[in-house]
Nucleic acid binder design. Structure first.
Lengths: 155, 155
DNA sequence: GGTAATATAGTCAGTGAAGGTCAAAGAGGG
DNA sequence: CCCTCTTTGACCTTCACTGACTATATTACC
């Protein structure tokens, strides 16, 4: 593994392996210093090697006392594969409202998501899109409100 | 918790947990002295950690004998309905990503939604908004994909 | 009672310390 | 030579913390 990205990947994987709970907590800056590279190199490694598809979850925080938290998730292989295929079939794909709700239906039937979760998904994907011109904050509020509203019928 | 703000947050939360009625009464100045920081640091902690979105209510009084009173409010179905009405009556209210996720977090804590459902909500409300220029169908696919991706971490 | 002094708490803008993004240059393999 | 993966650095956003200034109670004194 002669390249930098590979070395950093290996290093992180070893830390993870040595961690009792398969999770590590570190600082981007320090890691970069350890490898004598620019900090953004760490982002490159994380975004190419520690992806959800590979079963990793990366969380972070900016500002003073900022950090990176990397977790290795242990997943039920079959279900993951199913969902992953579904997910990949969706990204960037054109999807009419009808098809989208059909799809959610199938997820529920296959017991990959609960009925309530299905309701949530439908609530969001069926939101009217005229909201696209609104400010981001407003859209967020609308989505939250819609999701909660749907769940309220189920509580 | 290496941050000052984090330490203060923890300290207050412990006081609250130890309090029989989930309410505490203290002085800003004394708290600041306890942590050897400027008093306004306490305001910072209160305004970022003990917000209504997280279910806290902070009251205060200035002048001699001034104080801070911090309460943790419990959230039930009726409260959600109220909040929802409030939100819907205020369509166009700003809602930062931070506040939105805080609120979802609170819903989960109050057991009004499951952890998975909370993850779904967060997945959608945190979607980057550059997608606003994309066609409606694509946005739908992205939302679904994002929701599924998040569920993957939970299987 | 009115007013000045004192004792609190609130606000806000500035500074510094993280991490994030993106585009362009570099390196290697077919 | 071309394509892909890697590496870098300039610029951006978020978070933490501070201190000067402001606002509001209470207390003391006349």
């Amino acid at each position: 593994m002669s390249n930098l990205a590979g070395s950093i990947e290996l290093y992180i994987r070893r830390l993870l392996a040595a961690s009792p709970n398969a999770a590590i907590h570190l600082q981007r800056k320090e890691l970069a210093e350890h490898f004598a590279c620019v900090p953004s190199q760490i982002n490159y490694v994380l975004s190419t090697r520690f992806t959800p598809e590979r079963g990793y979850l990366v969380e972070s925080r900016r500002g003073g006392g900022g950090y990176l938290r990397i977790r290795k998730l242990d997943l039920n292989r079959d279900k993951v594969l199913q969902l992953l295929e579904l997910r990949q079939s969706l990204t960037g794909q054109n999807l009419s409202l009808q098809k989208a709700t059909d799809f959610v239906c199938r997820l529920v039937e296959a017991r990959l998501v609960t009925r309530r979760e299905g309701l949530l998904m439908n609530a969001v994907i069926s939101l009217e899109q005229q909201k696209r011109d609104d400010a981001l904050e407003i859209v967020r509020g609308l989505m939250l409100a819609r999701m909660i509203e749907v769940l309220l019928h189920e509580i």
